[in-house]
Design a protein around this nucleic acid. Structure first.
Lengths: 265, 265
DNA sequence: TTCTTGCGTATCGCTGACCGATACGATCGA
DNA sequence: TCGATCGTATCGGTCAGCGATACGCAAGAA
């Protein structure tokens, strides 16, 4: 997100090894993240900070390669991006071993269960086993939400050295996703401390209204958090206390089964 | 795959608008498709047809941008590729409207159901609702299998003008995936004709042993096939005739519900 | 130990791939 | 009939990127 860096090192972007042509290419594809609709060449160029000519060339090439497609309303991402996601998922040993565990968990909790991966200030959903009808983007693999306001994110922050968790909180864009999103650092630290104490984290309507989510961190062989297992229920069907009591042991057990096994990175 | 082209036009790769730097970048990311394991800079460079220096620069940049990550055993795809897949899926109106339909279908057939998208000689799975334990890569979104030997692919070929279907068959790399894969053009044409007649296509152990798959095509507003809905069962539990009789009406109904609605392209 | 091989990393002068200004035709609404 | 905005195409200048080269390190063989 931000270009802000710690005081320590030279940024990778200023290295002579950093190719602006590569960065430009990816900025074009990333435009759809901010503007999720068919875009014209001009819009893509503007979103990527390019002039019309540069945009035209990059779009032409990406289209020829299948990373962009023309729809009636403009350019959209191409099917090739799905192939690349497949490459990611199939090579990820954690995703592989988590899949049967999640299915098992899904059977016992009978609610939506997810596996998310930690990516500093965000978490990404890598496996999702949904239950009921929900709003569409929220059910997709690749979906990203802020670490600070997700149960899984906070479960992982709780497993990090405090100073490191603090740094991530400070880097985060802490705009609330719902009226109930906790955004103040002290309150977040309290929730993280609670997660450390209990072994799981809970989020009440912090990323979607009406939703209660509980998560536990998956640790790698060095004890560092790499992923989290979530279980999500509806507040129309669950009391907070019942949810905690019934679901947390199952989620923690699933997370423990995956922890300390692989190097995961 | 092949660079072979029809006689008609200048290839997009020879256009002055085609940027080799963009193509090189993507060739690096595509290396994992052929070599699904952590790769060194040297291996990535070789796989992408680059010398060491060019590879070093591109890898450095992709890593800085989060499209490559370092694992203990080498470089692997980065989480950013998942974000791009999310952009694809959330913008795809067909995927969106198919999701509830697939859930409904899943409930009535109680077997794995998928939505696949046509990409000329391949089909890509875009939504997957699995049932039992299966081999891992076969359950992932983004997975690609040849059009000619998948039930969904053949259902879509049946909805194309014959000459166009023929051209796709001829372009295809028709190496068998299992001993039971049908690879001869006349036999394939017969299966396609059957699909056209029945309204659905069937594949018996053609992409995975022990698996019976049945699919129907989803048509866009112009009547062109854009996707297919699959239902997959195990031969240890199903007779072919029972499967056809019980499953085909449900799959065809689901495909019909999605057809002719959106422009889809 | 010493040599070798392969790795990641870093440097640097040359050059052609790419830049961006420019122009043209089509489409669409006002 | 305009003007705005789109996609498309052209072209000479130049700097981003090329690739040869070299260095340090780690692992394995001799």
């Amino acid at each position: 997100m931000s270009t802000a860096r710690g005081p320590e090192g030279a940024s990778p972007e200023s290295s002579p090894l950093f190719l602006q042509s590569v960065a430009r290419t990816l900025r074009v594809l990333e435009a759809f993240s901010r503007f999720p609709r068919p875009l014209s060449i001009a819009e893509l160029s503007a979103a990527a900070g390019l002039d019309k000519s540069a945009g035209q060339r990059i779009v032409h090439t990406l289209q020829a390669l299948g990373y962009l497609e023309r729809s009636s309303a403009g350019l959209v991402p191409g099917k090739k991006v799905l192939y690349r996601a497949f490459d990611y998922l199939r090579m990820n040993a954690l995703v592989e071993s988590a899949t049967p565990v999640l299915h098992e968990l899904r059977k016992s909790v009978r609610e939506r269960v997810d596996l998310s991966l930690l990516d500093v200030t965000d978490i990404v959903y890598a496996v999702r086993l949904q239950s009921k009808r929900e709003n569409f983007p929220a059910t997709l693999v690749g979906r990203r939400i802020p670490t600070f306001c997700s149960s899984g994110g906070r479960a992982m922050l709780a497993a990090l050295p405090e100073e490191e968790a603090m740094r991530i909180l400070q880097q985060s864009d802490r705009r609330p996703l719902t009226p109930r999103t906790i955004t103040e650092i002290p309150a977040l630290l309290a929730k993280i401390a609670e997660a450390r104490r209990e072994g799981y984290a809970l989020a009440l309507e912090e990323s979607a209204l009406g939703e209660i989510v509980l998560a536990a961190a998956v640790l790698d062989i060095h004890g560092r958090p790499v992923a989290a297992i979530h279980a999500a229920g509806s507040l129309s069907e669950w009391e907070e206390e019942t949810f905690r009591r019934r679901i947390s042991p199952l989620v923690m057990e699933a997370a423990r089964a995956l922890s300390h096994t692989y190097k995961h990175g």
